[in-house]
Design a binder for these strands. Structure first.
Length: 576
RNA sequence: CGGGAUGUGGCCUAGUGGUAAGGCACCUGGUUUGGGACCAGGGGGUCGCAAGUUCGAAUCUUGCCAUCCCGACCA
């Protein structure tokens, strides 16, 4: 392509509403423009990057035996009601009514649709295993879109779904996808880590997440120092804390007047105590039943662990009215004493069970209870009571005796073993070798295409702009032709350009009538990995310049060697 | 959804009751040409929207809308 013919609106100044480097640079380099909160247009340069990544994914998926299909973005709500994920996704799912008042959703993912296809078409175990994938836009009405394309409401996802007659076959494909993902991210030039993950509203038995370690990532990766264990925060298990000795001289529970202290912080200020000495009583609803979660004041409830403890039943935080009715007090004053018996289920975090003495809400507006002894003043066992790990890991926790460390990451892919969650609800069955019906066992495998691009930019940039890995760069080579009035310069640049194109290289010829400064600045900002500079000074000696975006030095080489040396350089960058 | 902030030409910003301003970008002409040039001229804004206070509102008040930041069920 000739730069003069291309739409590449670079901007000199950093946009005021872009916070992190990838967002700023993707706008400045003319890759994307925002249309509304969480929705972006990919301009020619950005779309080229997107397609580079898509091509890598497609090649690797095909090599792994997956078949590409395309499912609709518009799906009927009934499919989602059949699996119960209508409620699981809740407001995150975009819905709309059509003119016939049918409710439709904009696909946040496609398990239901693909399983319905399988249910209708697959008859025999001989057709399995089968792995279907698509690369298409997905929609999620995020409560808070942010960081440019890292968390957007519409995004490009590669989603694959595999069907199997048995568990071993699923394991094989799962492993194959796992290996394929490693190749994809490596080819995209990204350093990644793989962590154990929760299956979330996907359901299923096992899951791994592929994450790009990065300061601005939204995910927290938890790992031991020796990396023998790594998981995301939703999953990361912690060792139980040691039982603390219970002093003998603790008085009876005593209600204390604590006006207007509905938060842990306020109570602690008021009573001069510490969050670690408090018990938080959280009230959840499962269908119409009340379920309680008890965690220490300085700990956060882990929604995933909590859901697992509830056998994956859909749950949500109770509303204000329900809480007031159930506790008889304003929100912020719930406590375990006298309340546990009324709940249909209680999950007590391990850390609460070992507290010697605590302060909790008194189930009375503006009152807290001091001298609460777990096990003495409220039960730690019983038909409706269970002790479990339901909190987030924190600094200082261990797992299997090893200290846990934390770092941030951007989630770019995840693989799940789904089991029969979808096939059972949508009736995806085949006849097995014995002629009896058996449910398909499934796996699913997702990649966030936009996030690959954003993480690459996030990790690879300097004060001048982006530094693309060659495999996903919009162009592999840029020829900066200075002195557009000099016929020799123009001819030499055009000549190298044509020869590189003939060799199949993606090359951008900067033929704009501009002074050299802006041309160099744009080339650096856009971040094309190899730059050939053609200018009359070097050309007087029969030379052009070859420079890597990642290095500051350039070298002069004879015009006659330009093609061969550039090809060599391209090859060596791919080899890295 | 709660808390905070911001909305002034395409972009970045100044302007806190008295004629809408500057830089960048854009158009024309000229000079310039190895790291975001210079001179001269030019186009472009109902100051987010609506109502109110006032002789007079970008500026004060109220409501709404949009965007961003922090937080709470996230790929």
């Amino acid at each position: 392509m000739r730069y003069s013919q291309m739409f590449i609106p670079t901007v000199k100044e950093t946009p005021a509403d872009a916070e992190i480097p990838s967002h700023q640079l993707m706008i400045r380099a003319g890759l994307i423009r925002k249309v509304a909160s969480g929705t972006y247009t990919y301009l020619p340069l950005g779309f080229r990057c997107l397609n580079k990544v898509i091509n890598i994914i497609r090649q690797e998926m095909e090599a792994a035996g997956a078949q590409e299909i395309l499912m609709p973005a518009i799906q009927p709500i009934e499919l989602w009601q059949q699996t119960g994920r209508d409620a699981d996704y809740g407001p995150t799912m975009c819905r709309f009514q059509d003119r016939h008042n049918r409710v439709n959703v904009l696909a946040p993912t496609a398990e239901e649709v693909v399983t319905a296809i399988a249910a209708g078409e697959l008859k025999s175990y001989k057709q399995l295993p089968m792995n279907l994938y698509q690369i298409s836009p997905k929609f999620r009405d995020e409560f808070r879109p942010r960081f440019g394309v890292l968390r957007s409401r519409e995004f490009m996802m590669k989603d694959a779904y595999s069907f199997h007659a048995d568990e071993q076959s699923l394991q094989q494909t799962y492993q194959k996808m796992y290996d394929t993902y490693c190749r994809i991210f490596k080819r995209c030039g990204l350093e990644y880590v793989i962590v154990e993950a929760e299956t979330g509203e996907m359901g299923g038995s096992a899951s791994h997440q592929f994450s790009i370690p990065c300061e601005n990532g939204e995910d927290i990766i938890v790992h031991t120092e020796d990396n023998s264990y790594a998981a995301n925060l939703e999953k990361a298990a912690v060792d139980p804390l040691p039982q603390q000795p219970k002093p003998q001289d603790i008085g009876q529970p005593e209600d204390v007047h604590t006006p207007g202290t509905g938060t842990i912080e306020a109570v602690c200020d008021f009573l001069k105590t510490k969050p670690a000495q408090m018990i938080k009583t959280l009230i959840y609803k499962v269908e119409d039943q009340i379920v309680l979660a008890l965690v220490r004041g300085d700990h956060d409830l882990n929604a995933e662990k909590f859901t697992v403890a509830l056998d994956r039943q859909h749950n949500e935080l109770a509303d204000e009215k329900t809480i007031e009715q159930f506790t008889g007090a304003a929100v912020g004053f719930a406590g375990p004493i006298g309340l546990l018996e009324k709940a249909s289920k209680v999950i007590i975090d391990q850390a609460v069970a070992v507290m010697p003495v605590a302060v909790s809400g008194a189930n009375k507006t503006d009152y807290h209870t001091a001298n609460v002894v777990p096990g003495r003043d409220f039960p730690l066992s019983g038909a409706n009571i269970q002790i479990a790990d339901i909190r987030n890991a924190v600094e200082g926790d261990t797992y299997k005796g090893k200290k846990l460390l934390f770092k941030r990451g951007i989630e770019v892919g995840q693989v799940f073993k789904l089991g029969t969650k979808y096939s059972s609800k949508l009736g995806a069955k085949v006849l097995d070798e014995n002629g009896s019906e058996t449910l398909c066992t499934m796996g699913c495998y997702g990649i966030g295409v936009n996030r690959i691009i954003a993480s690459a930019v996030e990790l690879r940039n300097d004060k001048f702009g982006i530094i693309w890995p060659i495999s996903i760069a919009p162009f592999e080579v840029i020829i900066t032709a200075l002195n557009q009035e000099d016929a020799e310069v123009v001819k030499t640049a055009a000549d190298i350009y044509e020869k590189l194109r003939q060799k199949g290289i993606d090359v951008l010829l900067d033929d704009r009538e501009l002074r050299p400064g802006p041309k160099f600045k744009d080339a650096d900002l856009i971040g094309i990995p190899i730059r050939i500079t053609v200018g009359k000074k070097a050309l007087a000696d029969g030379n052009i310049e070859l420079k890597l975006r990642s290095e500051s030095k350039s070298r002069h080489i004879p015009v006659t060697d330009a093609l061969s040396q550039t090809l060599e350089l391209v090859e060596s960058l791919y080899a890295d």
